[in-house]
């Protein structure tokens, strides 16, 4: 969810920039290192960023007819890791603000924190933990993408509650209200995105699994197991 331009009052939008900028710097450092080692990665990362942008501008099929867009960040974090996803996230969010009028410039810091940093990081941690615990690959992807989407909304609610604490209940009071409206309505959509991401990986493995092996997302043995021993 994008926080609109001008929505966060003065100390908060600067503070979220203070939070996001060091992470982005670290991401750029990692990116520079990766690119200087393997120059063929830059075009690949560029098309990956474009892919995330297009993914997030597609409408997710939903039951009620209300439109929602997948965040795509869970998938990006699984494919490229959280540091690079953060850098791609900044560019995607900037383009979304300028092309589609989603989000804004002063709120870019807050939006990067929720959609580019914390959500992908959650997805990445869940994915790594799940793969280590030897759970089925598709289940892990489903969980990672679902929680990345949902945690993004929880973080956004927290950001709004911090900026606008309730008179009676303080921060917790308004956090409950923002969570009730944004995080609960997002649960079915998050599950939808999780299912979609798992299906996407299923199709990719069926058609061209070497792309995933090359990115070190999964090992060749896992692919063979998923395809069945005959494959």
């Amino acid at each position: 969810m994008h926080i609109m331009e001008g929505f966060l009052p003065s100390p908060w939008w600067q503070l979220w920039f203070v939070f996001s900028i060091p992470v982005i710097m670290f991401g750029m450092y990692r990116l520079n290192k990766l690119v200087s080692e393997r120059r063929d990665l830059l075009p690949l990362l560029a098309v990956a960023g474009a892919f995330i942008f297009v993914l997030s501008s597609l409408k997710l099929p939903s039951v009620t007819g209300s439109s929602s867009h997948p965040t795509g960040t869970g998938m990006a974090a699984i494919l490229f890791g959280p540091a690079v996803t953060a850098v791609l996230g900044v560019i995607v969010l900037l383009y979304q603000a300028l092309f589609l009028a989603h989000g804004g410039l002063t709120t870019l810091g807050a939006n990067v924190a929720s959609m580019g940093i914390i959500g992908p990081l959650a997805a990445y941690l869940i994915y790594k933990a799940g793969m280590k615990a030897n759970i089925n690959f598709y289940v892990v992807v489903f969980l990672a993408a679902t929680f990345a989407d949902w945690i993004t909304y929880v973080v956004t609610s927290t950001q709004l509650a911090l900026a606008f604490p309730s008179q009676t209940g303080g921060f917790m009071g308004s956090l409950q209200a923002f969570l009730a409206i944004f995080a609960t309505t997002q649960v079915p959509l998050a599950i939808m995105e999780g299912a979609l991401t798992a299906l996407i990986f299923k199709y990719i493995i069926q058609v061209k699994s070497d792309a995933l092996v090359e990115l070190k997302v999964i090992s060749q043995e896992t692919v063979n197991k998923l395809r069945g021993i005959t494959a």
Partner: peptide, 11 residues
């Protein structure tokens, strides 16, 4: 590399 990345992404 950041600017190159954003230019290629744009295309």
């Amino acid at each position: 590399s950041f600017i190159e990345l954003s230019m290629m992404m744009y295309r």
